[in-house]
């Protein structure tokens, strides 16, 4: 038998490819994880409080208790993700030791380092990171992120920031494609992004890794909108378990991501889901409450 390799970039990025066209759901208990799995989630994100509650409670938000993460790992057969604070190398080592399948270095938690993100190449477990624009996305990929998501504005139930970030990243990709090759070094300087990755984007017209929507998705139509804009799949945080009927809403969002081009199906599944989470107007947030401004 030939020797096997583990933890390679191909395995980490290839794993992220398997989430495409799917919905990754925030869960805070094993029971919610089971509901998410039965509804068709492609993975669950295990955390102690959904972003809407983190927002309400205030204080420092940290990595979840390993006991709770282990309970969720034991409860489902689909992949389990969990969040670490930006720059918290040791929280990431702990999650890897727990056997978590994917780590989200997330602005939803209180940053542990206001200057430096984790060097993700050194880990066997893959990472997903948030981004507001292409430069930020490519810096994270340069550090070893295997998957990118929009930051959006988590815990608001308001999709406007996720749309803004998706349009920014995808628009910047289109702009790079139209530039002649000799201008790419200057583009890299302006974006503050690694030159080799800018060249990749120029050649392929996409990020080198899977690109998901996150931060404010609350309805099947929101999820389908993000797919329509050209993203590969959707994270739903507070949007499911802060709504009136989480099970039905979860099922409907799963279907919406698959059938985002079929308006008849979207109309049918959007019906009678009960009230969505209440939602917050982004303009009502004071700057310190804007999670997307965390990380650079």
């Amino acid at each position: 038998m030939t020797e096997a390799n583990t933890g390679t970039p191909a395995l980490k990025q290839g794993f992220a490819e398997m989430f495409k066209g799917g919905v990754i759901m925030d869960v805070v208990t094993a029971e919610q994880a089971r509901i998410a799995e039965a509804a068709g989630a492609t993975a669950v994100m295990a955390l102690e409080r959904v972003p809407a509650d983190i927002r309400q409670d205030g204080g420092v938000a940290r990595m979840s208790d390993p006991k709770m993460i282990k309970e969720i790992i034991a409860a489902v057969t689909i992949p389990v993700m969990a969040k670490v604070r930006i720059g918290h190398i040791v929280e990431a080592q702990i999650l890897q030791a727990l056997g978590v399948d994917f780590i989200d270095e997330s602005e939803v938690l209180t940053p542990a380092d206001d200057q430096f993100h984790i060097l993700k190449h050194g880990f066997k477990v893959p990472f997903v990171c948030g981004a507001k624009n292409l430069g930020e996305a490519l810096r994270r990929v340069g550090e070893g992120a295997s998957m990118i998501r929009t930051k959006g504005e988590a815990g608001t139930g308001n999709v406007v920031e996720a749309v803004r970030h998706a349009r920014t990243v995808l628009g910047e990709i289109r702009a790079i494609q139209s530039r002649p090759a000799e201008e790419l070094m200057t583009v890299a300087r302006d974006l503050q992004a690694p030159y080799e990755l800018v060249r990749y984007v120029h050649e392929h017209g996409s990020l080198p890794v899977v690109n998901f929507a996150a931060g404010g998705v609350a309805t099947p139509a929101d999820a389908a909108l993000m797919m329509h804009l050209g993203l590969d799949g959707v994270f739903v945080g507070s949007g499911i378990f802060k709504s009136d009927n989480p099970e039905r809403r979860a099922q409907a969002i799963v279907k919406a991501v698959t059938h985002y081009q079929n308006a008849d199906i979207l109309a049918e599944i959007s019906e009678d889901l009960g009230a969505p989470m209440t939602g917050i107007n982004i303009d009502d947030l004071i700057p310190a409450e804007r999670l997307a401004s965390r990380g650079w």
Binding site: T2, A4, T6, A10, L11, F15, P79, Q96, D101, F102
Partner: peptide, 9 residues
């Protein structure tokens, strides 16, 4: 789990 994922010939 994912940390055990592998490539081989």
């Amino acid at each position: 789990r994912q940390i055990d994922s592998f490539t081989t010939e």
